[in-house]
Amino acid sequence: MKRFAGWSLAFPATLLIVVFLVLPVLATIWTTFTTPAGPFATYLSFFGSSFRRTVLFRTIQVSLAVTAIALVVGFLTAYVVSRAPGWLKSILIIAAVFPLLTGVVVRSFAWLIILGKNGILNSTLLNLGLISEPITMLYTQGAVIVAMVYLFVPLMILTLVGVLESIPDDLIQASASLGAKPSATFMQVTLPLAVPGLIVGAVLVFTGSFTSYATPQLLGGEQVMMMGTLMYQQAMVTFDWVAASTIAAVMVVITIAIVAAMNAVARRLNPMAT
């Protein structure tokens, strides 16, 4: 009876996920193996095309750069925020939540105004006499990386503030009272205890960057094509749905593999679990 109650309550949501997510996505992946040319033909052609390989490597490269920058910036900022006095902490959290809840189009658009040919950065540099003509900043890998770091730093800060606040203060005080310098306490107590949180943050940022669409579309354009923009182009511009499905399958496999691998690593590294 209880088993039935649990099932019937979870059933509508389960049905939604199965019908509108599991089946359509599996069907997309299935079609990549059932082309007339043979089961792996689409993958051979994906990895055989140097253009598509370049897009894949560029996407990995950009995502890794964004993850690394967001980790360092986010962790150091979260460290300061978590030790700030109460009123200041509230203000800082508001300042991090605000961009987080603001849409990706608005946040990417801001960088379009800043980095454009007649944008704020170029006109400032021109006025200061540092450059004699506008530099091309839009539609470069750098522009995409900056805008994505902007996108993900708030998420990283908030994730890590939560993690850092959950570290018992006793441990920090114990370390200090045993004579460790603040830097030693940071390196030997705070940092190791934050590792599981850093892994969670890194996975969120990497998979988010890897599968993003709006930011590379607006700030990278055709020149800095990434997996998401390439998939859209194949599906909606050239109408090659088999190629688009192949990119989709590659994205799903890489995302799930990274999440699974990092889960395993996080479980191993968690010093509290042992």
């Binding site: 997510l21 359509p24 996505v25 069907a27 997309t28 669409y213 998939m231 599906a235 994205m251």
Partner: peptide, 13 residues
């Protein structure tokens, strides 16, 4: 599951 993949799959399938 990446949202792009979900959107494309809902369109296609």
């Amino acid at each position: 599951v990446p949202e792009l993949v979900l959107g494309f799959s809902l369109l296609k399938n």
